[in-house]
Design a protein around this nucleic acid. Sequence first.
DNA 1: TCTGGGGTCCTAGGACCC
DNA 2: TCTGGGGTCCTAGGACCC
Length: 421
Amino acid sequence: MSALFALVDCNNFYASCERLFQPRLRHRPVVVLSNNDGCIIARSNEAKELGIGMGDPYFKHKNFLRRHGVAVFSSNYALYGDLSWRVMTVLEQMEPAVEIYSIDEAFVRLPPLCGSTAAMQARQLKERVDTCVGIPVAVGLGRSKTLAKLAARIAKKKNLGVFDLEHCREQQALLAAVTVGDVWGVGRRSVKKLNLQGIYTALDLQKSDTQRIRRTFGLPMARTVVELGGTACLSLEKCPASRKSIVSSRSFRQPVTELRDLSEAVSSYISIAARKLRDQGLVATNLHVFLATSRFRSDIPRFSGSRMVSLEQSTSCTSTLIKAGVRTLKALYERGYPYNKAGVMLTGLCRSDICQQSLFAPKNTKQQAALMGALDQVNDRWGKDVVRYASSGLSRSWCMKQARKSPAYTTNWSELPMVRA
DNA sequence: TCTGGGGTCCTAGGACCC
DNA sequence: TCTGGGGTCCTAGGACCC
């Protein structure tokens, strides 16, 4: 008997968080809005029953929400982050193998258990989170992550709390009842293509030819097919890979045309991104600035572009980044466009304690070889990892190639030693 | 000078996820 | 009038270099 995956998924997470502090909203519909109160990004079950869609623009529903007595909240990410941490801590206290997948979901590996024991264990997880944090969760059990996701979906849909797809007799019938677009990893674009090939349900996809899917849709989709068949391709990642990019961007309430105003906006986004960078103990090598006009307006000129600047030295210093960012913005800016959105992205991220001592950005293959040589000497165990880590100032493709060459390559950076090149 | 292969860098965009 | 923000991975083409 092999191990089972459990997916613990918080129900309507943001809405549940708001409700936690206002119990009077218990049976009332609740929605939470995105930044700028632009879109609806979380809905309680009652709000879903009213027909409010995920991502719907707030302005279109404003009157409707008022008429139906829906409680509306602007988002409070600090609160959600804190409650998420509490939920994850409870899970980690109960089980040794937990992967925090997103702010409101975690995969848990359960040891091989017989049917009733697995469900019982899942129920204990659910009850503990409920008691200790007060956030309702659904738990799905399956032989792969994809099946666990599907099971959690069924648990929510049928209001079961816990659902074990592995020890369930009607597995095939249940898969046949799930449309293929509701399978984890199958997006809107692929649904159309799959339908053209006669694949409409999760069961159809499970029964399809893996090689053909691989050729038509690529590796990730082929993995989904195998996972649906009960073979785990995706493992539990206890230590999350380190960040590869940090983004800070916003849409404007009104179109912005002046460079001065855009500079102000970009500077403030850089401050936010640099703060995140420092909080995570990282430095960045590249800064991207991007600008775009509204994608919903056909009556005004369209523009969307980005520009990157490589920094002379990896840094997390706000003023250095702002100077570079404003220069880059000037190069990107074109007069006459009503810009609707701007943002910045930091890439070439590297842990600051390693980077400050060892990183120099090699300009050619000779320098690359020298860097690799120096870092390889650290020791066999860490060498390749450090190379990839310390070389984040290099191009992505070069790093990937180095990483692939190493069979022992891992993405677990948590115990990396300090290095001097 | 011509020729070609192999490689990187950059930009852009597609697809997926929460 | 108003339509989110933050991620990952992959692909492709043009410019450029050795």
